[in-house]
Amino acid sequence: MSDDRRLDVLRAIVEDYVATREPVGSRALVERHMLGVSPATIRNDMAALEEAGYIAQPHTSAGRVPTDKGYRVFVDRLSTVKPLSAPERRAIGSFLEDAVDLDDVVDRSVRLIAQLTQQVAVVQYPSLRRSALRHIELVPVGPRHLLVVLITDTGRVEQRTLETDAELDELLVARLRVQLNVCVAGRRLSELTGALDTLTAAFEPVHVSLVASVVTIIEETLAQESEERVVLAGTANLARVGGADFVGTLGPVLEALEEQVVLMRLLSEMAEDEATVSVRIGRETQHAGLLETSFVTTGYGDEHGAIARVGSIGPTRMDYPGTMAAVRAVARYLTRILAGS
Rank of each mutant, 00 (worst) to 15 (best):
L176N: 07
I55D: 00
E259F: 02
T235P: 05
A339L: 09
R6F: 01
D273G: 02
R336C: 00
L196M: 04
L35T: 07
D68A: 12
D76P: 07
R72Y: 03
R336I: 00
A185P: 07
D245H: 10
S268W: 09
D245M: 07
I113W: 04
I313M: 08
I281S: 07
T67F: 06
K82H: 10
G194A: 06
V9Q: 04
V261Y: 08
R5P: 00
E272M: 15
G299C: 05
V241E: 10
A239L: 14
G93C: 07
V73S: 08
L172N: 02
A325K: 05
V73N: 03
V182S: 11
E220S: 10
A306D: 13
E284Y: 07
Q260T: 13
P315D: 14
R11F: 13
L102R: 01
T60V: 13
A308R: 02
G36V: 02
A56N: 05
G155P: 03
L96P: 01
P140N: 07
A339V: 08
D4P: 01
V100I: 14
N44W: 09
A40S: 14
E137H: 09
V327A: 06
V139H: 10
V230R: 04
V178C: 02
V253D: 00
F95E: 15
A40G: 12
V123D: 00
A233Y: 06
A195S: 12
L84N: 08
V173A: 02
G142S: 12
A201I: 09
R188L: 02
F74K: 05
R309H: 11
R156Q: 09
L232P: 13
V14Y: 03
S38Q: 10
V247F: 10
P87Q: 09
M318N: 11
E258F: 06
A185H: 15
D98E: 15
V208W: 12
A19Y: 06
R160S: 13
R11E: 11
E269I: 03
S226W: 12
V37M: 07
I42L: 06
R111G: 13
E15Y: 01
T161Y: 03
L338C: 01
H304M: 10
T298Y: 04
L150H: 01
L254C: 02
T164D: 04
V262P: 02
V122F: 01
R177W: 05
P39Q: 08
A308V: 01
A121L: 09
E225Y: 09
G194T: 08
V206Y: 10
R280K: 14
I92D: 04
T316Y: 00
S312N: 01
L290V: 07
N181F: 08
L192H: 04
G314R: 07
R32S: 11
S213W: 00
D68S: 12
I136T: 06
I151L: 11
V208L: 09
E22D: 10
E303T: 10
I55G: 00
I218C: 10
L334V: 00
S2N: 14
L116W: 03
A202V: 12
C183Q: 15
A132F: 11
S268K: 15
R328Y: 09
I151R: 11
L334W: 00
G194H: 04
